[in-house]
Design a protein around this nucleic acid. Structure first.
Length: 351
DNA sequence: AAGTCGGGGTA
DNA sequence: TACCCAGACTT
């Protein structure tokens, strides 16, 4: 393994790397609530819930939802017995709502069959992919499975000075490095390093326990690795919605499909290509047998891959209202409902 | 392999 | 603004 553009890099000293990182972890592990219990023998329900919550979600944010979720559903039996609407209410605002629906579906399986006892068993559950199955099986049974998440990808890309690590490449390097004596602690150690020291923008190499083993550190600019991922362009979406009722009780629909699926929200119609808001509003009114009224305002809501602009109108119809506080709403619908309260405030400003 | 799916943190 | 976050699932 030689390079034409520079001196050959020394081979990675795996035992020294493992010892240095685990010593650092033993001294600096983050005290996270799902880490209660002895190493490699954690409670499967608590670990499982945390891993689903933390998918594409930063730890600081996951913490707030973790307490709320475990209070609502302390055991897998409680979760399995709950209605889906209650599960989504606990997940409200956390995003990627398929996670909550899959977790609920899987809880029913686990309540009937017991917890899986292996990587393969966890992988078979809905919502559990390679990362989550590796995390749970290593943390609860010390199974020797290496996790591959955003932290691991970044740390290993820098250690090996790899600009464009593929998923297969990362998994192979992680498998090589995993400490078979302490799989659970090892996985947490790499992720803690990535989250607190080997960060995306400003890695703190002076405090890194494995900088002596890092190719990117030797080269002098760790932030070159990995190269940014190319992302799909953000699409602009325009829609109209009806607020029939008020900020406390309104006509709400359950959103089917993949976008905000399972949540409740104001009746809404997306504008067809070339369609005017007025035409879409008429379409929406006809669908509900409702009469649209004045425009309350426009809500703009960004969602990574698209940006929604929703014209919210009042409306009248003889339809049942749902208490807003009891329903699981997305942030988008929360903003739309808030327009009503804003209108009240502008008409009757507080003294 | 590429798209899709939320919402917010950070520089 | 750009890029990212303890990824999984569909197409």
């Amino acid at each position: 393994m030689s390079s034409l553009s520079g001196p050959p890099e020394p081979a990675l000293d795996v035992p020294a790397f493992r010892a240095a990182l685990l010593a650092w972890f033993d001294a600096h592990a983050r005290p996270l609530p799902w880490r209660a219990g002895s190493e490699g023998r954690r409670d499967p329900y608590r670990v499982w819930v945390s891993e689903i919550l933390l998918q594409q979600t930063q730890v600081a944010r996951g913490l707030t939802y973790y307490d709320r979720f475990l209070t609502a559903f302390p055991t897998v039996q409680a979760l399995a017995a709950a209605p889906e609407a209650a599960v989504l209410k606990a997940w409200e605002g956390c995003g990627y709502y398929a996670r909550a629906r899959n977790l609920h579906r899987a809880a029913k399986l686990v309540a009937a069959q017991g917890f899986p006892d292996s990587y393969a068993g966890w992988l078979a559950l809905p919502g559990v992919g390679p990362y989550t199955a590796a995390a749970i099986s290593s943390l609860t049974r010390n199974e020797a499975r290496a996790v591959n998440d955003g932290n691991v990808r970044r740390v290993l890309a820098r250690v090996h000075a790899e600009t464009t690590p593929t998923d297969r490449w990362v998994q192979a390097r992680a498998d090589d490095l995993l400490d078979p004596a302490r799989p659970g602690a090892w996985n947490e150690a790499v992720m803690d390093l990535g989250a607190t020291v080997c960060t995306p923008r400003r890695p703190d190499c002076a405090r890194c326990p494995v900088s002596a083993h890092c190719c990117a550190f030797r080269q002098g600019d760790p932030t070159r690795y990995p190269a940014p991922k190319v992302r799909a362009a953000v699409r602009e979406i325009h829609a109209v919605a009806l607020l029939i009722g008020d900020a406390h009780a309104a006509v709400l629909e359950r959103r089917d499909g993949t976008l905000l699926g399972g949540l409740m929200g104001l009746p809404m119609e997306e504008l067809a290509p070339g369609e005017t808001p007025a035409a879409a509003l008429a379409r929406l009114g006809a669908r509900l047998n409702a009469v649209p009224g004045a425009e309350l305002g426009v809500v703009t809501h960004g969602m990574t891959h698209r940006r929604l602009h929703v014209h919210v109108h009042t409306g009248t119809a003889d339809l049942p209202r749902t208490p807003v506080s009891s329903a699981a709403l997305s942030r988008l619908d929360a903003k739309a409902v808030a327009l009503y309260a804003e209108r009240q405030t502008s008409l009757f400003p507080p003294a």
